[in-house]
Nucleic acid binder design. Structure first.
Lengths: 243, 243
DNA sequence: CGGAACGTTGACGTACATCAAACTAGGTGG
DNA sequence: CCACCTAGTTTGATGTACGTCAACGTTCCG
């Protein structure tokens, strides 16, 4: 029901990816509310021909191992898509939990059939994104990963019309640490390190980037700071993460 | 041109994924030879609506950072698909190099249109696979990653009708190390460690798995061996890697 | 007030990288 | 055939990034 036309997230959501036109104006989307700390879906839930786009709020997507312990694989904000990895297996491999009161749009893949090639593009880009993220995470030290994370957040806020310099972290430290494959202690130390290096200011969850240039250097692995230099590959800089 | 019908790789390739039928029998695929150590494609090459499936041989797919250094993201063998991440951006993000004289089939996405939903499934599963692989790689120590790698190889050889107990590594140690985000030295040490623990035998590139059970334990992160136990997540076992 | 989450900081241990050297195996030329 | 090279692999000694354990400060809520 023509909701995309009036949606604030449209510039970064499906319409922007697929092109807003007569067809999309009639894209039937069902909106689902997800209260803070509740599941949108859990690993193992069945699904068919359906994925989600975040309308507002924030969702974390976690994958769990056989051992039951979970790792956060992505933080989704308005316009981001969720569940594209499930339509193949017809069931969710991970769990989606709201970090704050949120709302998502449920979209039926078959409704995108008129734009099928573009839908392929979306799926393909998601593959590329996952590869890139994995590449990123493997090939860098704690500081570099943190820099990439912060710049990515900054870019996404900017893209959505908020300040890319000053923003509020939607997730607790523990979640950031989990996502970056660090311990909370190490994350805290890195933040302090960044702070004392004049790169940023942190007040609880409020972050202000003071030297984005230096952060970008760090993220690229070309910084002169005490950052590890992998014998075989530092990592690319964000600025256009595909997600 | 009805090549799938007679292809030895069919049981693990597109036909197995999409269902071999009248349509697929006429799937026009162009076969491309790739000599050892030469590129099938390189990062930046343009592409449109096309991906590859390995007919025979072995290909490595590498992603490079801005800094130019490359990390191996996947080893592909017969039946594996390549380039699904490129059809969205219309250009390759990484490079594909043959580890031995190989041949691939070029497949046009639009030729799969009659089976479009299944093609979605393939793309979606690839997303899930990339997530899983990233998850895997992050959340485990050197030994665990090596165990996962070996079991994955073993499983894939078995799936293709070769012995899953005794097989020949198609890639040099350096490539394995790169793929596992380790140094060759560390990889070598882990192999020695496995050997002296009676888990396997290694003669140059010839590997014999002696205790797949113990390897599986290791891969799951539930082994009693001197393996790290991540405070927040060991990793799942292979046995059905989605690729 | 007490207690539970959460965040920060410090001391210490360990897995892995790094550096360096020896040991192969394959190739080339005498 | 041997001398000689280079590339790949293995082994050892040492350094370091980050995990682990423990203590302390905050904020929040009963």
């Amino acid at each position: 029901m023509a909701q995309c036309l009036t949606c604030r997230a449209a510039p970064v959501c499906i319409p922007a990816r697929i092109g807003l036109d007569d067809h999309l104006m009639q894209l039937p989307t069902r909106r689902v509310r997800v209260a803070r700390d509740t599941h949108l879906f859990q690993a193992g839930d069945a699904v068919a021909d359906l994925f989600y786009a975040v309308h507002y709020g924030a969702i974390k997507y976690t994958l769990s191992s056989v051992s039951g312990l979970a790792k956060i694989s992505a933080f989704l904000m308005s316009g981001d898509m969720l569940g594209l990895d499930a339509i193949g297996h017809q069931l969710y491999k991970g769990s989606a939990v709201a970090l704050e009161d949120s709302e998502v749009c449920a979209i039926r893949c078959s409704d995108l059939r008129p734009r099928i090639m573009l839908f392929h593009g979306i799926l393909s880009k998601q593959i590329a994104h996952e590869q890139y993220a994995a590449h990123q995470l493997r090939n860098s030290g704690a500081g570099q990963r943190l820099a990439v994370f912060l710049l990515d957040l900054s870019w996404r806020y900017g893209q959505r019309g908020y300040s890319s310099q000053r923003f509020r972290l939607i997730m607790p430290r523990q979640d950031i640490a989990n996502f970056l494959a660090l311990t909370p202690e190490c994350l805290s130390r890195e933040l302090s390190h960044f702070r004392s290096a004049g790169l940023l200011e942190v007040d609880d969850r409020e972050v202000t980037l003071l030297d984005a240039r230096a952060l970008r250097q760090l993220a690229m692995g070309t910084a002169q700071t005490g950052c590890m230099q992998d014998h075989d590959a530092p990592s690319p800089v964000p600025g256009k993460p595909c997600q």
